[in-house]
Design a protein around this nucleic acid. Structure first.
Lengths: 260, 260
DNA sequence: CTGACTTTGTGCATACGTTCACAAGGGCGT
DNA sequence: ACGCCCTTGTGAACGTATGCACAAAGTCAG
């Protein structure tokens, strides 16, 4: 089921991976514009954004043919086109629920207000915090979610509350009409169809980093005794579903400082 | 070239996409363990983690055969195996540079200390902040980067400083021996080979949300006047590289509240 | 006006990721 | 002890993303 028409119009057909990179290009373009650079080649822009130039050209080609062969791209024009594609030519009021450390960081975030986004309200359920002013916004009670969303026409909500409260807040946001949610709480939110959830989880990023860091350590150790890897995994009946776990420090690796 | 041996050992061959999901599974497993659930099927665990069950099984199969056919997975055993694969059975001291809102949020983050990670130090360059205590850590001067990294054997650094200062801090972290960097500053960091950088950018996530939100609006508008989409893009010579930009509000869409 | 040069936009090959569907394998009731 | 039933683990098909390499298309000098 879930047929997608994918018409020839550029409206539908932009790959998700491309969308995720457009903000990167946009940031690089703004940096160029700040330096009064009027034109840029795909090679230069790709370097500034940290991607392959062929990939950048293919990404931009999804928005249309906005470059000039032999010359490059007009910075201002491309900024406008990318902004328009991302929907940043309009104003997006955002409600932030949870005025803890993360909520405050978000409300104070510079790149927030600068390009298209605006903090419509900052909410919290803690009476000790309600009424205080953070980043120019008086913190309002979480009870006011419905009113705030309706009054300001909010379509985007950011959830920066503790994990246990996140689903409840999410439900209320959705019921009030919010269709896009940025979730910072370490839980999987369940939402009805048509609501878009993106998550930011610091812990996950750290764990991915730890994996690679450990892999580097392991590789380094294996270089010393290459023998033991060649042994295929013993898939005998040992282990299995035994009740006691062999939680000894077998797989442990020495994490020494890596002074160059 | 760039031959990869991809031996039968599980050490090398785990896809990046799988790695990125392992923390998700781990979180779901901890939640199950907290509820004293000893065994779980791929279907249940997949639902808890918000993924497809076939994907979950394939992901877990990369670590080895840790399930029991007809039964499922032993929760504690799987927690151990996933933790070990991610390198979370060892302790990772992390240095946080930048004690602004984000740095504080990170230092206070619950999921930080709980599983394998430990704040080794919190640094800042602002004399007004140095010396104050945040989340149980006395903020130290940014000058001490090298000493802190060496003393605590830090391999992971988090950068929560303003964009302009990020590359400089990054260089110093790398020079001091840090090989994994979590970057919150909205810049592309350049690092030598062998250093792993992951970025968390609130603005990018918001922009992706805005894109989808706008797309929903556009689709809704188009349903009213379906005619105009059928017209193929006029790729004539008009427009082109003209000096003046047509920055009128042509592509604007009405962002009305979405009351159910 | 012409021709050389530069850079875009894209066809194609390859790699990677996802999903289906089912055989293999283990537990459990009888 | 046997066979049914359940769930894992995986082969295969499909879809998506990436990167190379080059034709198309424009600029600019003379």
């Amino acid at each position: 089921m879930s047929r997608r028409t994918r018409s020839e119009s550029s409206l539908q057909g932009i790959p998700e991976a491309t969308i995720a990179r457009l903000p990167l290009y946009l940031r690089a373009l703004y940096a160029l514009a700040d330096r009064d650079i009027a034109s840029v080649s795909s090679e230069e822009l790709a370097a500034a954004a940290g991607v392959n130039s062929a990939k950048l050209r293919k990404d931009l080609s999804h928005l249309g043919s906005y470059g000039t062969r032999g010359v490059g791209y007009d910075v201002d024009y491309l900024i406008y086109q990318v902004s328009r594609e991302l929907g940043l030519t309009q104003d997006w009021p955002v409600v932030i629920v949870g005025a803890g450390n993360l909520g405050r960081a978000l409300a104070n975030y510079g790149g927030f207000a600068s390009r298209g986004f605006r903090v419509a309200a900052l909410l919290d359920s803690d009476p000790a915090v309600i009424g205080s002013v953070i980043a120019g916004h008086r913190v309002r009670a979480a009870d006011e979610i419905e009113r705030v969303v309706a009054d300001a026409g909010v379509m985007i909500g950011a959830i920066t509350v503790p994990a246990v409260a996140a689903q409840g807040i999410c439900d209320r946001l959705v019921a009030a009409g919010v269709t896009s949610i940025l979730n910072f709480a370490p839980v999987v939110l369940s939402v009805p169809d048509g609501v878009d959830v993106r998550k930011v989880d610091l812990s996950i990023e750290l764990q991915i980093l730890a994996f690679h860091a450990q892999r580097r350590s392991v590789v380094r150790v294996l270089h010393r005794s290459e023998r033991e890897v060649a042994m295929p995994a013993s898939n005998g009946s040992s282990g299995g579903t035994a009740g006691t776990l062999a939680l000894d420090g077998d797989g442990q690796v020495a994490a020494k400082a890596v002074g160059t």
